[in-house]
Nucleic acid binder design. Sequence first.
DNA 1: ACACGACTGCTATACTATATAGCAGTATGG
DNA 2: CCATACTGCTATATAGTATAGCAGTCGTGT
Lengths: 140, 140
Amino acid sequence: MKDPLVNLAGYVLRRASAVALAELNQRLAPLNLRHADVAMLMLIESVPGITQSHAGRVLDIQRANMAPFVARLEARGVIERRQVDRRSQALDLTRRGRALLSRARRVVAAHEATLLKRVPVKLRPMVLPILMALWNRDAA
Amino acid sequence: MKDPLVNLAGYVLRRASAVALAELNQRLAPLNLRHADVAMLMLIESVPGITQSHAGRVLDIQRANMAPFVARLEARGVIERRQVDRRSQALDLTRRGRALLSRARRVVAAHEATLLKRVPVKLRPMVLPILMALWNRDAA
DNA sequence: ACACGACTGCTATACTATATAGCAGTATGG
DNA sequence: CCATACTGCTATATAGTATAGCAGTCGTGT
């Protein structure tokens, strides 16, 4: 089938992302986690006590959506909130959160391995640099 | 800010895709198009008379979602449906659709150029091969 | 010849992710 | 000490995608 879109980086980027995301979410389903949950847990682990609003900025989650999202994780007992200010909330992992995260990390690692295995060995070292460049974390 | 997620290809893939998609949609807004519309128009142009269900499979759009999607494009007068069977619909661009598509194509080209410009020249030739590989169009 | 399974287009519905608007309260810098 | 910016939050809206099921049609195997 002649697909005229496969020459468009933007299109292939979107399709690749959609597939990878679906696969990851499927892998995480047994842990009752979604990709965003794991991202949050990993961020909090890496920056313990990070502010809720700050975490939202890093992960690009709106303040409005942060509230129920964090509340769910807290209700589940994997993170806890600590008042830092009378407005800011610091986030930390609970013992349970750390245990869950360590399981999730294995799933993520397997997912990453699957992704990279699809790329020819010679191209593999360029995957992250190219994705970072496309994401445009540095330039304007 | 130490972001522990930037080493994960899946994460960066998702973020890059989200940014690129948002940018493209913004560029297309003046034409009153979204990225999915353009994908459909380009596909129909490339395979005139393609069946609605077939187009849905190529673009990975569910049959159920295809119906209102195609209806919108038809109501707008950019595509037309032709009965091929008493069940299958063949899709074609109208004159108006071709005109709109040629404008959209310029927007898409500009978007593609912007994306690729972010990638160091030496890595640029690897962008599409890597994205295709991640998308996994061939392997299992 | 025709029954059956597979396919098409469709409606209705639901779920997820994300976005906008606005509020009450708090911190901070000029 | 006041104006401004910030925080967490609720309520709500929009877009994209997914599921279930229906009526009708087609193609194939026997």
